[in-house]
Design a protein around this nucleic acid. Structure first.
Length: 797
RNA sequence: GCGGACGUGGCGGAACCGGUAGACGCAAAGGACUUAAAAUCCUUCGGCCACUUGGCCGUGCGGGUUCGACCCCCGCCGUCCGCACCA
């Protein structure tokens, strides 16, 4: 879409635009110094990639994982294209401004819903995924356990519909069969077949249905729409009482594509149903009584009760729990028959719908099928792949350029040879991103999408990183694709990403002048003093309002160009700042002051390394047999820091890791400051050289360029990027002494430094002897002394 | 409406399993060096009092559990995110 829009705006071919973007992105990533294997680079818009994708599609088609069916879409009548929901703003196309229509189009679908149960169940195995993402997927898949129940339609109520087959019975889906005795009405979706049948005999109903359709499109309208219904005059027969007739309404809040598009309404225990009956005055009979409430006085008027309780007003269900009542209703309805079939059936439903991949667009992967009047839908033969996009297309008219291309779609039917028509829909670009990580495992395979052995060896991805915005779409599609590729023999695993981490975005302040115009950061000067910060326009010096911190966007002009950052501070500073400023799962607030601070710290590290080299001298001393206390302290600091940094990197706590690097730098600074240059023994020189190496190696992953330079300064011959991660000597970290905080009544009063080997009793005695403790105890006797080993002492008086 | 997360100095954020709250950094203030500025270095930096050694308060608010609570429990308030008539 962006490529095609750019093509329309700038008269550039989408291919040119896309490849130019790829080039500049690649250059940027390279200048950041990221360790990527560029030999494996793929471009999803290239036939060498999408050709394999077409092969996957054909395999999926043969395996029954593809469906072609009618579906309602947002249709822009000016641009002649389908719009995604998020491209419809207030019921109008975001680009054309035309009122969007609901159209039924035949579209291609991938049958992700075949895997609803599997995709849901496997979420429990993804223990290295954030709970938040798993929960979002769980909700999106939306499993519910319920029943299908068929209601007979009372013959006497059919009237003009007597001969309509749709009007004999009504099947509904419910998760609350226990509340069947609270039924007050039936409701069906406006596009339910029964509604259509009834509308043929009732112009007023037809008008009502039309009205519902119009409101149906815009999200805002759905939010505020009142519950409305239309009594069809039909009466359904209660499954447990042939004399009990329930009115059938067409209602605007019933969705055709969930369940059966029909429900029975139990207002006492469902808020939507209650809102509905309060409009039409149908009443509400409670059938579940909350614990501790008198069933004789329990009434429901404005708030439906959906909690636990015991059945009331429900004949043979009275006194049962909800669960027992559900089971009893299921048992009875499964046993009863209506028209030779059981009247009820247990059913599991999912909210997850099949994935509509048809786009009436040019810049995407062509769907490799041919439509023949005789043979119908015919797959493109494999030897004819890839089906390439034509280059000579125009973007000056609305609609799909592929469809209006003079020759591209005209082909012979592969089966009968008669003139036929290529499919002109292209695939949703989410298809491209659903398997690129598999292609990475062998991008050189020309004959097949994957080399199975390679895919199985590399996958699953150990650690996947992406924004939270992919929580559902991309990550769910990829999980489906992996399963579909397994089924079609392209690989042998089900879950593509073993570990998932959702990183934050880079965000920036916004600036706005008195006229309400947005200003870019490089057009603004910030003055800071004790009273706060103020912004002024560089051009003219007028005061500027500092707005909220937001995601970088062109419209708010709060973007900072990566190239500019790299050219003014260098890639290392950019990397260092982003990692140090906040934990990686949160947004990084990009501030000039913050970057300058990071820059200053980096220069300090560089000076420290040079200082260490000066003290150590050109020849490194051999490892001495023993270390004096200052040398031992340096070694302890270095190894303790290294151990902590290691732990933090492992947990992706880069900001804390960097804080620890600073702590080590501070202590090395202090150690160097404390010694007289002519009095440095070999042991201290050895310790400082060792600590210097550790310092540089610990920041090497974050600042590779500077680390390489420092590594040489310290006299190392190899490349730091080729040297192994240093090993922390954890035995150095524990000292003979420990310092314990001492509390009196839970309030810290002093610290106690004592031999690590001291006994409980010795610690207790030493703690009670401390001046500050005695003062706080104020001559009161100690009631109890709690000594938590290695942790704390608490005296209770 | 439903579901979830979060709330710690002026700011970004630390604090592992209930055990020293505020690591580390930014900003700020004062000082040293300098003719001056930049850079660098030193000091202070949650609040209030005593200003000396110390005392009291303090992790959104109100309760509770505990020897001890940013952390656990109950009830509020606020912010952000996801879903949204899914029967």
């Amino acid at each position: 879409m962006p490529a095609e829009n750019a093509a329309m705006q700038n008269a550039t071919h989408p291919a040119k635009w896309t490849y130019a973007n790829i080039d500049s992105m690649r250059a940027q990533l390279k200048s950041m110094g990221l360790s990527l294997d560029w030999a494996r680079e793929v471009a999803t818009c290239d036939p060498s990639y999408y050709g394999h994708q077409q092969k996957l599609f054909l395999d999926f088609l043969a395996a029954g994982l593809v469906a072609r069916k009618k579906s309602k879409v947002n249709w822009d009548p000016v641009d002649h294209t389908v719009l995604a929901n998020e491209q419809v703003i207030d019921g109008r196309g975001w680009r054309s401004g035309a009122v969007v229509e609901q159209r039924e189009l035949t579209q291609w679908f991938l049958k992700i819903s075949d895997y609803s149960e599997a995709l849901l169940a496997a979420l429990d195995t993804l223990d290295r995924w954030p709970d938040k993402v798993r929960l979002m997927q769980r909700n999106w898949i939306g499993r519910s356990e319920g029943m299908l129940v068929r209601f007979a339609i009372d013959a006497a109520s059919r009237g003009a519909l007597a001969d309509e087959p749709e009007a004999r019975e009504l099947e509904i889906y419910t998760t609350r069969p226990d509340t069947l005795f609270g039924a007050k009405f039936m409701a069906i979706a406006p596009d339910h077949p029964l509604a259509a049948a009834a509308a043929r005999h009732d112009p007023k109903l037809a008008a009502f249905i039309e009205e519902c359709r119009k409101i149906g499109t815009s999200v805002a309208a759905i939010e505020t729409a009142e519950k409305k219904g239309y009594d069809t005059g039909l009466r359904a027969v209660h499954p447990f009482d042939a004399d009990w007739k329930v009115p059938v309404y067409v209602a605007n809040f019933i969705l055709m594509d969930y369940g059966t598009g029909a429900i029975f309404g139990c207002p006492a225990h469902d808020q939507r149903d209650l809102d509905f009956v309060n409009v039409y005055g149908l009443g509400a009979t409670p059938v579940v009584c909350p614990p501790g409430v008198d069933p004789n006085t329990f009434v429901v008027d404005k708030i439906a009760y959906d909690g636990d309780g015991l059945m009331i007003n429900s004949r043979f269900l009275d006194g049962m729990t909800i669960e027992a009542a559900k089971a009893e209703v299921a048992r009875r309805l499964e046993g009863a028959t209506l028209g030779n079939r059981p009247q009820g059936k247990r059913q599991v439903n999912f909210k997850l719908r099949d994935w509509g991949i048809s786009r009436q667009r040019y810049w995407g992967c062509p769907i490799p099928v041919i439509h023949c009047e005789v043979d119908g839908v015919v797959p493109v033969p494999e030897q004819d792949l890839p089906v390439k996009l034509p280059d000579d297309v125009t973007f000056d008219a609305p609609g799909n350029p592929l469809d209006r291309h003079p020759t591209w779609k005209r082909v012979a039917c592969p089966k009968c040879g008669r003139p036929a028509r290529r499919e002109t829909d292209t695939m949703d670009t989410f298809v491209d991103s659903s398997w690129y990580f598999v292609r990475f495992t062998d991008p050189w395979n020309r004959t097949a999408p994957t080399t199975e052995a390679m895919a199985n060896r590399w996958l699953p991805v150990d650690q996947y990183i992406g924004g939270i915005e992919h929580a559902i779409l991309h990550l769910l599609y990829s999980r489906f694709f992996t399963r579909a590729m397994k089924k079609t023999g392209h690989l042998d695993l089900e879950e593509p990403f073993a570990g998932l981490f959702t990183q934050g975005m880079v965000v920036h302040e916004t600036y706005r002048n008195a006229d309400g115009r947005w200003l870019a950061p490089n057009e603004v000067r910030i003055d800071g003093d004790a009273d706060g910060r103020r912004a002024f326009a560089l051009d003219g010096g007028k005061p500027i309002e500092i707005g909220p911190i937001e995601k970088m966007s062109k419209s708010k002009r709060n973007t900072v160009d990566p190239d500019e950052i790299i050219s003014s501070y260098g890639a290392d500073t950019a990397r260092w700042f982003m990692l140090s400023n906040s934990p990686p799962d949160r947004d990084v607030i990009w501030t000039e002051a913050g970057v300058q601070g990071a820059f200053k710290q980096i220069q300090r590290l560089w000076r420290l390394v040079c200082e260490i080299e000066r003290v150590v001298g050109p020849a490194r001393p051999a490892r001495p047999a023993a270390f004096s206390p200052p040398a031992a302290a340096v070694r302890r600091a270095a190894h303790a820091a290294l151990a902590k940094i290691e732990d933090q990197i492992e947990r992706l706590g880069f900001n804390v890791g960097i804080a620890t690097i600073y702590e080590l730098a501070n202590s090395l600074d202090a150690a160097i400051g404390a010694i007289a240059a002519d009095k440095v023994g070999d042991d201290l020189r050895y310790a400082l050289a060792e600590a210097g190496d550790i310092l540089v190696q610990s920041f090497a992953p974050m600042m590779p360029h500077l680390a390489e330079e420092c590594w040489q300064v310290l006299g190392n011959q190899t490349m730091i990027s080729m040297s192994p991660w240093p090993e922390a000597d954890r035995s150095l970290i524990v000292s003979d002494q420990m310092t314990l905080p001492v509390q009196v009544n839970g309030r810290k009063r002093d610290e106690l430094t004592i031999d690590r080997s001291a006994s409980q009793a010795e610690i207790e005695a030493a703690a009670l002897a401390l001046d500050a403790v005695r003062r706080a105890m104020d001559n009161r006797p100690a009631k109890k002394v709690i000594v938590v080993p290695q942790r704390i002492v608490n005296v209770v008086v």
